[in-house]
């Protein structure tokens, strides 16, 4: 479903990703861990098509198509979703307006008709209930004045409504209290299916207790330096990243 092949990427003149490869099969959940500044969010930005990140080498194939040639909105309509590490606030634009426009854009691309107001409201009610969110969120401006945890929950709400085929979650667990973490994990797990995949970026094993990954990768200095099963996350939790210093990157 997703093939990242030897991707080199830079922001401005700073090289950040230095030959990153990763293969994600349909229905799989891959966790990506790694120290601060190792390039995790940069990878997410490469996938979503952020204009600040330039890919200088390599390919990203999504269903066999090179998505680096697609605009960010085309990628989204093709079923890619990024839950941002730092979701922006958009004053004056209500959550429900964004959800409706986004959903209709994605539906139109799939050839589905626009949802009418009643069906839309029904859908949104169901999803906010699933995520334990108050209805009043819908009329508020996107992320404006939201607490850190509320912003993350809002990202998952959008993902629930857009039903992407590839979800990239960038530290969606950070800033969440224990209960919120469970709710968010529930929101993600409810979407898991044989044809939907996730890349879950996190620093903490505790998220992976709830969203159980098929694979865990360690990203360091722009490359995946170790991959393993879910037990790798436990090992990292215990040992930290000091061992990275002891062996040459890429070993």
């Amino acid at each position: 479903m997703l093939e990242i092949q030897n991707v080199h990427a830079q922001a401005g003149d700073t090289p950040i990703l230095k030959g990153l490869s990763l293969s994600v099969g349909a229905g799989e959940v891959h966790a990506i861990m790694g120290p601060n500044g190792s390039g995790k969010s940069t990878l997410a930005k490469v996938l979503a098509g952020h204009p600040d990140v330039e890919v200088t080498e390599g390919e990203v194939l999504y269903d066999g198509k090179n998505i680096l040639e697609l605009e960010p909105d085309e990628r989204a309509r093709e079923g890619l979703f990024l839950a941002f590490q730092y979701p922006v606030e958009i004053p004056g634009v209500s959550n429900s307006t964004l959800l409706r426009e986004a959903l209709n854009a994605v539906r139109a691309h799939r050839g589905d008709p626009e949802l009418d107001a009643i069906d839309f409201l029904g859908l949104v009610k169901e999803k906010t209930a699933l995520l334990d969110m108050d209805q009043s969120f819908l009329s508020r401006a996107v992320n404006e004045g939201f607490s850190g945890g509320e912003k993350k929950r809002n990202e998952v709400l959008q993902m629930q409504i857009l039903e992407p085929r590839l979800g990239v979650l960038d530290e969606t667990d950070s800033g969440l209290d224990i209960d919120a973490l469970k709710v968010v994990a529930k929101g993600v797990n409810a979407l898991r299916s044989p044809d939907r995949s996730f890349v879950v970026i996190t620093h903490y094993q505790r998220l992976l207790d709830h969203i159980v990954p098929d694979f865990v990768h360690v990203l360091n200095e722009g490359r995946i330096v170790r991959s393993g099963g879910k037990e790798l996350a436990h090992e990292l939790e215990e040992k930290g990243y000091a061992w990275l210093e002891e062996q040459p990157a890429g070993a």
């Binding site: 098509g49 909105d73 989204a76 922006v88 958009i90 004053p91």
Partner: peptide, 27 residues
């Protein structure tokens, strides 16, 4: 960043722009 956020949700550049302008005007 706001424009990118909206586009990452599937809105065309034009739709994203109009929504942001609308947001600006809504006050």
């Amino acid at each position: 960043e706001q424009a990118f956020y909206l586009r990452s949700r599937g809105l065309t550049p034009m739709a994203a722009r109009n929504l942001l302008i609308h947001g600006f005007a809504s006050e």
